[in-house]
Amino acid sequence: MPGIDECLLAAMVVPGALGASLVDWTSGLALGTVGDSPNGDHEATAAETAELARMAAEQRAFSPNGLPVEDVIITTPSGYHLLRFVETAFDSSVFLHLWLDREEGNLALARIRLSSLAEQLVLA
């Protein structure tokens, strides 16, 4: 039963991890952060990624049957960004954001690890 910090520290153990955060996509608030941030400012990054997460979570194109969106993946020449939505039994709108180095990171592995961390975070 890890708390937010333990969860983010565990995400940083994923090969190639540069930074991780837990963000609320309605408000754009960073609830927790560890490591580096792509633009050197975790709060600004949270507000920007929240906007992306919101679009993915709310557009009908991505959940035609009402099923929730699981991940958002962004690739760049130097890195990967993996956003994993956290499903909770109360009303919330949060996701984990893991930033990975392109050379060191393995997207498939990171996706599996982040999905399991998102479950453990709210597992009583």
Binding site: G3, I4, T88, V122
Partner: peptide
């Protein structure tokens, strides 16, 4: 055992802010 640490922290921060 009623709540996970993560759940408590999430709800707490949500209510606090």
């Amino acid at each position: 055992g009623r709540l996970a640490d993560g759940e408590l922290e999430l709800c707490h921060l949500s209510a606090l802010f």
